[in-house]
Simulated assay, not measured.
Amino acid sequence: MSRTLTFVVYLLAVLLQAGAYGLTFMLPRLFDTFGANEKAVGLILLVATVSTLIAVYFSGHLSDWFGRVVTLGLACLAIAAALALFAVADGVNAMVVLASLLLGAGWGLTYSLAPVVLTRLVTADERIRYFALHSVVLMVGFGLSPVMASQIEAAGGTIADAFLITSGLCVLSALLFFVLVAPVRRHAINPGPEARSRLSLGYVGRILKGKAVLPIIMVCLGASVFAGMNNFQTVFADARGLDYAHFFLAYTITVVICRVALAKFKGGTQPYMTIAALQYVMAGSVLLFAFSGASVPAYIVVAILFGVGYGASYPVLAAMAANDAQEDLVPQTLQLFALTYFIGIFGFPLIAGWMIVELGTAPLLYLIVALAALEATMALRRAQNDQASLPLAADKAA
């Protein structure tokens, strides 16, 4: 298998399993058929958080035992089983809890290890471009699976049908990852054995003392913003008489366009300034949503702006986590980056679900605006500090 075909198959495997996370946006509708509310969704995603954090922490151990690509295939099978269990469940019971545990573990492994495999195939200068391409296919899966679910409902099917279809796609993804084991080893930049990648408390301490601590904190904030806007988008839309498919379709198209453009972008001289500008756009989009009411055009504009802000800034932030990492800690740094991402992705819905039931959607949206603005400001401060340090570095060189 050629290097180009290896990348194509890798991206196809990522795409096929990415829809699983997009279907978590449909959990409020699935749980509604059980007679459960948003609090139950938040609690089940909290269960997923626990298994995710455990899986991400031990992902390096599993990789050392089985190899990263084999571990990715096994993780996809866990996701497939989780989606099938959600599809056949008839209430919030032990089956749903098991599904949540499997989903969290499987998604945690795929999300944390896939970028590590990618770094083995590309040089440091290529990371932003290839991280952008990787994130394009992820976002296509994220965004189009809710649209698929909407079309299935419109055709007379159920949300459970969407879970079953996506389960089958995850099985195909697993098979593709198993096929990629030898090609990835053959085309690695450093063709020797994989570096040990297990995470430990000692490594965590070293990482948190370095420059990579900033993107690691920022990604947790951004993931909370993403989860708050997307996991309960069906609730926001139903309350305003809007079609949630319009949001996800506009958002996905925007993100794909932005990330394809980023595939030719090397970050510029001030990547954190780029991140800050994009994330202020993200904060503004949520603020607009808080006041846009039932306007369909405004709803589309919100989705586009959110796609530009979050969608374009994330791959740059992920690349900066790798570039800010100590050279011998890149795999561990990316695993910790993924771990804090999942704290936001699966942990924040617990807060969001409680706020929707007890306080309503408006206070939740204001909180999301505040988190987005905080993340943007952190990036701005880092950019200002980097700019201020340039004259000092020049003086030392002279």
Results as ranks from 00 to 15, higher is better:
Phe7Arg: 08
Met320Ser: 12
Val88Phe: 06
Phe177Ala: 09
Met355Glu: 07
Val140Phe: 14
Ala338Thr: 01
Ile216Arg: 00
Asp238Ile: 04
Leu164Gly: 10
Ala379Gln: 11
Val219Arg: 01
Ala290Pro: 06
Leu305Gly: 12
Gly210Leu: 09
Ala321Phe: 02
Ser200Thr: 14
Phe25Ser: 11
Thr269Gln: 06
Met229Phe: 12
Ile216Ala: 00
His187Val: 02
Asp395Ala: 14
Val260Pro: 05
Thr361Arg: 08
Cys258Arg: 01
Phe306Asn: 12
Val122Thr: 15
Leu53Cys: 05
Leu62Tyr: 08
Ala294Glu: 11
Val301Arg: 04
Ala398Gln: 15
Ala223Lys: 03
Thr52Met: 09
Leu262Asn: 13
Thr274Gly: 11
Leu45Cys: 07
Leu45Val: 11
Phe86Lys: 01
Gly104Ser: 04
Ser63Val: 04
Leu62Pro: 02
Phe58Gln: 08
Thr274Lys: 05
Phe291Ala: 10
Arg381Val: 14
Phe291Gly: 08
Gln279Phe: 09
Thr252Glu: 02
Phe337Cys: 00
Pro191Asp: 14
Thr377Gln: 12
Val8Trp: 09
Val179Trp: 06
Glu38Asn: 15
Ala261Cys: 13
Tyr272Ala: 07
Val136His: 01
Ala55Ile: 02
Ser51Ala: 14
Phe346Tyr: 13
Val369Ile: 12
Leu85Gln: 04
Gly91Glu: 08
Thr361Ile: 14
Thr361Leu: 11
Ala397Asn: 10
Thr119Cys: 03
Gly267Phe: 07
Thr4Asn: 12
Arg186Ala: 14
